[in-house]
Design a protein around this nucleic acid. Structure first.
Lengths: 221, 221
DNA sequence: TTGTTTTTTCAACAAGCGTTGAATATAGTG
DNA sequence: CACTATATTCAACGCTTGTTGAAAAAACAA
């Protein structure tokens, strides 16, 4: 039995759609390409998921919930581990990035496609207003709040712009365009999320401090 | 005479195509939407630019050359102004960002659309391998070289990843998705490139130093 | 088994797609 | 003016699109 014939057909449709949408965007993929890739009839995708747009939402929503929950969990765990003291800036940034590292390491190749899809959605003026708003905005507040605790004197606009830079750097990394491979002559690889991850934490932490000032240290009570 | 009836029709086609491609991507725009927006017959776009893909290339190429040349010029000017001494890290980053600030301030609303288009192309796995490669990769080498001068002991991979983070933060800013407006409760605006620009320089400079070490100061000869 | 529900395929629809050759209008030239 | 080249429109082509109702197959229940 062929690889693309294993598993539930409805799941295969989601997997193939995820990969193709990530690569070519919503309008760059046809229902027939998806059904062909999943080795099912074109009508089956409509039967399970409705309209093409609904399928797109289903694909995006499938892993969004899991990712958001993991993010919140990691953030709260690091808060608890600090036992009363505020988290370090590095811990907050790490909590933001760690779930994606987990996903990368999970071995499920679908996660890699999903990350590229996430980058596509994040940078799209259209999808950002619907999919990001409905699936990810709610988690951002907690991160900003954690940052406010350690940067009580920083202006909110500064915090948001810095968060925005982290988001952007992350998005381009998730997109895995292959450009860094080319520009670096092979010294860096788009697929090497570990390399991107390790450097991103000190980079972004230093950036935050340069813009928002040194964080306030609160004594243990 | 209506606004969309002014100017050369071929330029109007490029302008409308630029705006629509930036918003919906290559596959999300039809030739008829473009021609309708430019108030011309659908065949005229083909007459002037050939296939749809050629039109897309023409749109992207129109401002790419100007942008690339300005970038190189600014970089070399700052090199000359340093009169023998190496540039500061901030100067190098500024040279990378300044042309976009210029474009923003030029008053031409087309530039704003082009920036969103550039973000779309930068983050697309498909277009990155063709359009970015053919139009922008050649300029990156000069920036990396300038960075190597002031970070002679840094590993190349570190420099490239840091450059990658700057690219990503810039891309998300150029995309103008409106997300930061929402998340910040109106305290930040996607359209306010000046605000993004001012904070980006100290942020990225600090990030570079955190990953690549303090830059080497070379005495005046 | 028979009956029922769910899943999957088949075949086809109307609408929209990019593209093109021929016809018409406009501008430029002498 | 007439002649020519360029610009623009018109009308239509063959093809692909997303979607759907009905038929067939498979799974399930009794």
């Amino acid at each position: 039995m062929n690889k693309k014939d294993s598993g539930l057909k409805s799941e295969r449709i989601l997997d193939v759609a995820e990969e193709l949408f990530a690569l070519h965007g919503f309008d760059g993929v046809t229902m027939r390409q998806i059904s062909t890739g999943a080795n099912v009839d074109v009508a089956l995708a409509s039967y399970h998921f409705g309209k093409k747009l609904d399928l797109f939402y289903a694909v995006f929503h499938r892993r969004a919930e899991l990712l958001g929950n993991t993010r919140r969990e990691v953030l709260r765990n690091s808060l608890q581990a600090a036992s009363g003291q505020p988290q370090t800036l590095e811990q907050i940034i790490e909590a933001f990035l760690l779930p994606l590292k987990f996903a990368q390491e999970s071995g499920d190749p679908g996660w890699k496609n999903y990350m590229a899809l996430l980058a596509y959605v994040m940078t799209s003026p259209v999808w950002s207003k619907t999919l990001m708003k409905d699936n990810f905005d709610k988690h951002v507040g907690e991160f900003i709040e954690a940052l406010k605790v350690i940067f009580p004197k920083a202006r909110e606009a500064d915090l948001h712009w810095c968060y925005h830079y982290v988001s952007g750097a992350l998005a381009l990394t998730l997109a895995q365009t292959g450009r860094i491979d080319r520009l670096s002559g092979g010294k860096c690889q788009s697929s090497d999320f570990e390399a991107a991850y390790q450097r991103m934490i000190p980079f972004m932490a230093a950036g935050f401090r340069a813009v928002c000032g040194k964080e306030t240290i609160i004594k243990n009570r």
